[in-house]
Design a protein around this nucleic acid. Structure first.
Lengths: 353, 353
DNA sequence: CGGGGCGCTGCAAACGTGTGCATAATCATC
DNA sequence: GATGATTATGCACACGTTTGCAGCGCCCCG
């Protein structure tokens, strides 16, 4: 009797056939076995501390109770929160996440996907951000279960749960418009990433809804969601000599880059230029100035995605659903009234005079 | 021919027995099979796109090429970096991490451990922080492979890789002493956690090495590594009316709490009190003021731990090794000379006069 | 020419579960 | 009370891989 107890051990102790034990222990098939013997089996299992072997079970059933989670980078607190939500959500259904970082690199995604498929994962939750995706093709071909989180594909063929970028950007633009800003710039994220793309679209619509004109010269596209790119693009706006009093950034990191560029140009935020970020990362309330931003419920994003996956695993084939979670504007110190800004300019002129 | 190709399929195509295919494909046993047939098998496998089934293999070999990773909270960027290092390190050896958050809760740790054991993980890397630990007992009993990261157990019986807290705190204290500070307070983390405990010890030694006296009233212990606790404990120091010009915090978050408490008491950092953190979390350079702190190479911590695990998996039983990784002091805006501080006080007195 | 050693491959038994099928036992029905 | 329906359990195989053992052919050497 070395190693953990097996089905046979339990069978021997209970005086029944291993097959019966299997049926008695599986809630699904317990109805097939006599209540009294089921009781005896359960007691025996309890006594031996029996734990079913998921490996053996997986071999037989072709399932692993495991979900592959593809995420660009766990070190990004945004994705860490999503993953945390996924983990907690999956636990409800007895599933375990298998996590892999892809760095948004196609090749690494591919190998992670292959490795996970080989490990017989029962489905994939993909937080990788590219808009076009081979997963889509592979999904329709092989019927593998997929849920997208924090992004969708253009065709809307896959179930997905994302923040409502359209609404979030609208909140940001309305806030700025309410403060009197009229010439608002947009520092967009990469258009190959879903979030960059959708927020850009949201910006165009929101401006129109507020009756403001979008100056194409005031929209600049970054290559990546990084501080460095944010600084570069914001510097581009400033060097161009274009007039604007506020920036809507596609991301908190881009907004942070704006801080740097503004400082490098001797401008102050929010006195000279207001800045709005997106995501409400941890600690953005600690920045100088504290960042006004749009909060996305990342944890709930993950938890909801997990729920969608569980639903898909249970039911035969539920309809592909596209869920939107509501964002929330968090007003802090990086935005100020445009009028006050003008006042301050004249005021400073007065004193300098 | 539905589903992925199996060993038998390859055998059929190559005209050999499945056992031979197994041997030919396993680099370990390839020497046993004729070179020509091995070639034929490899070609056949290539043609069918054969991928070995890790589940079946695991059932047979009782191994899963998987390492359980126990971490308090992935949303803490510190642990995210460690996990990232572990993942990259394990990949070298063909292993995959299976990650679980434990929230430093004993019960959750236990169930995660059980679940992972059932999944036949080949070892555990534990970043959970408590000093006493059942893993130790279970390890000696069952011989399961364990590596600790970012912490050790008191007995030093388990291989571990940690930052050199002793040295790190010494750098911090020396820096402050060099700036002329003599009355230095210590805001220690929970003493039930390894890092809180070791840094406290480091503080005592470093003070002695610098020829400074440790005033027991200037050492206060927090219950958790959070901003809130930092603010509470720092407030306690300030309310006590004790004199000090600098604080060494056990953690960046505790240091952040100090910012809050200082501001609440109308004191400025670093003008009135210098603050040093620990860890160099992302974005601490963005705080007001930018935080002077001790950088710990978290990614390398994880990568090294993975290496230790691989070593342990290959070799029979390597000696339990205790590795220390060197920290680095990052000087920013939260520390200032104690003399300059006095100057500023008198200066402000002069102007107010 | 026979025997022993060696290199290679086939054979089959595992690993622990799940499940269709058969079978024994129990029960209801006419 | 015989028959068919129902219930409960045993039986055996399958999942895909690894691996000890056996056997076959070959070569070398005596």
């Amino acid at each position: 009797m070395i190693g953990p107890a097996t089905l046979r051990d339990v069978a021997r102790l209970a005086g029944v056939h291993p097959g019966t034990v299997s049926r008695a222990l599986n809630p699904q098939t317990r109805g097939l076995v006599n209540e009294r013997t089921a009781r005896r089996v359960l007691d025996a299992a309890q006594e031996l501390g029996y734990r079913p072997n998921p490996i053996a079970r997986g071999l037989r059933t072709n399932r692993s109770n495991t979900i592959g989670v593809l995420v660009p980078d766990l070190m990004n607190p945004l994705f860490a929160a999503v993953v945390r939500g996924i983990e907690d959500g999956l636990r409800e259904g007895g599933y375990t996440p298998l996590i892999a970082n892809t760095d948004n690199d196609a090749e690494r995604e591919r190998v992670a996907y292959e490795a996970m498929s080989a490990r017989q994962v029962d489905g994939f939750i993909a937080a990788t951000a590219r808009r076009d995706h081979w997963l889509l093709a592979d999904q329709v071909r092989t019927g593998v279960k997929v849920v997208l989180v924090n992004r969708r594909v253009d065709s809307d063929a896959l179930p997905a749960v994302t923040g409502d970028d359209h609404e979030g950007i609208r909140l940001a633009v309305e806030h700025l418009a309410g403060l009197g800003h009229r010439r608002i710039a947009h520092l967009a994220g990469s258009q190959t990433l879903y979030t960059g793309w959708s927020r850009h679209l949201g910006f165009l619509d929101a401006m129109k809804a507020c009756g403001l004109e979008v100056d194409p010269d005031l929209v600049v596209f970054s290559d990546a969601f990084t501080e460095k790119e944010g600084a570069r693009c914001c510097g581009e706006l400033l060097d161009g000599g274009r007039e604007f009093t506020a920036i809507v950034a596609g991301n908190d990191l881009l907004a942070l880059g704006c801080y740097d560029a503004l400082e490098a140009h001797g401008l102050r935020c929010p006195d000279d230029v207001s800045v709005v970020g997106y995501n409400d990362m941890p600690f953005v309330d600690r920045f100088r100035p504290p960042l006004t931003t749009v909060r996305v419920p990342h944890y709930e994003l993950g938890a909801t995605a997990a729920g969608l996956m569980l639903e898909q695993l249970r039911g035969a084939d539920p309809p592909a659903r596209q869920l939107l979670l509501a964002p929330e504007l968090v007003i802090r110190g990086s935005t100020a009234p445009a009028v006050a800004q003008a006042d301050r300019n004249t005021a400073s002129l007065d004193t300098s005079h």
